[in-house]
């Protein structure tokens, strides 16, 4: 009998210490939506989430004739109910959604990686503690099926086609801001560390992979780890600090066909983001000395977080 109590005590203590460890190292006490999860914890959460949803979604029944389809009526339904959080091809989510944690991902990318059953499952059930609402009881089954077909068709829509489809829908209101690009934003004065934070708060990581920011594997926009040293920005602008700021501030103004939406970044914020990108990979013709400086700063950042 006494043995049993001893075992129970040891087991209990072990569990308590493991729990405390997870709480501590997983940074569970940091409740701010500005802080990201540590990378390993994020990977763990995603693994558990995806495994469970894969099993659960097995039971979803889709009609025999289910097929991806993008008609104007469903597009409007999508833009009204989903677009303010998830955005659409070439259309930004509402301002508030960019500050959510986790950030609602761009569904064109999701549709490439997930089955239709899983997408229907997400729409019907939502996802606890994530901000994804359950639509069961708010949308009819037919509407949820239409939306599933629409989401699975998103990767086959160009930004131009999508915008035409939803032309009738009212766009989510954007906060007013100063869109004029001042003649001189001093990119050299940008603060890379602030840029990294601002990129998280503008949900850049939901479409791009960016070293230093935690998130899912994603192929909607290009990987930005070497964007600073490419010769062209987005394949259309010569890579100069000034052009980088101009692109980030308002991409459709530079290239009306681009899938990257205007996210309401101010020029000063864009200068900080550019500083971070150039810190990740120096501009094509950076001098050797600048590179050394970059290397040192990169190490500093690495130590901080």
């Amino acid at each position: 009998m006494k043995r049993l109590w001893q075992y129970a005590l040891v087991a209990g203590l072990t569990l308590a210490i493991a729990g405390l460890g997870l709480f501590g190292f997983g940074e569970f006490w940091r409740l701010s939506a500005i802080r990201q999860h540590p990378g390993w914890l994020y990977t763990g959460i995603v693994f558990v989430r995806d495994t469970i949803i894969e099993l659960d979604a097995d039971d979803v029944e889709l009609p025999e004739d289910f097929a991806p389809s993008a008609d104007a009526e469903t597009a409007v339904l999508y833009q009204a109910n989903c677009g303010q959080c998830h955005g659409g091809p070439g259309v930004a989510p509402g301002e508030f959604a960019l500050g959510m944690m986790p950030v609602p991902p761009p569904l064109a990318g999701v549709a490439q990686e997930r089955s239709a059953k899983e997408i229907f499952w997400f729409i019907r059930n939502g996802l606890k503690m994530s901000g994804m609402p359950a639509w069961e009881g708010r949308l009819s089954r037919a509407q949820m099926l239409d939306l599933t077909a629409f989401v699975t068709a998103l990767p086959s829509l160009s930004p131009v086609e999508y915008k035409e489809l939803v032309a009738g829908a009212t766009n989510s209101p954007q906060l007013p801001r100063d869109t004029d690009i001042p003649a001189r934003v001093n990119v050299a004065l940008g603060d890379a560390e602030r840029g990294r934070l601002l990129m998280r708060l503008h949900a850049c990581r939901s479409c791009h992979e960016i070293p230093g920011l935690v998130g899912a594997e994603v192929h909607v926009g290009p990987d930005l780890s070497e964007a600073g040293s490419r010769r062209y920005i987005a394949g259309v602008l010569r890579n100069t600090p000034q052009n980088m700021v101009q692109w980030i501030t308002n991409p459709p103004a530079v290239d009306p066909l681009t899938a990257m939406p205007d996210l309401g970044v101010t020029p000063a914020q864009a200068a900080d983001m550019a500083a971070y990108l150039y810190q990740l990979s120096p501009p094509p013709n950076a001098s050797k000395r600048a590179e050394e400086g970059d290397q040192k700063r990169r190490e500093d950042v690495g130590n901080r977080d």
């Binding site: 064109a108 990318g109 490439q112 990767p155 086959s156 829509l157 160009s158 930004p159 192929h219 909607v220 926009g221 290009p222 987005a234 394949g235 290239d255 066909l257 681009t258 899938a259 990257m260």
Partner: peptide, 11 residues
Amino acid sequence: RQVYVAGVLPN
């Protein structure tokens, strides 16, 4: 795996 060609058209 890329969603867009040159950032403008479905792949």
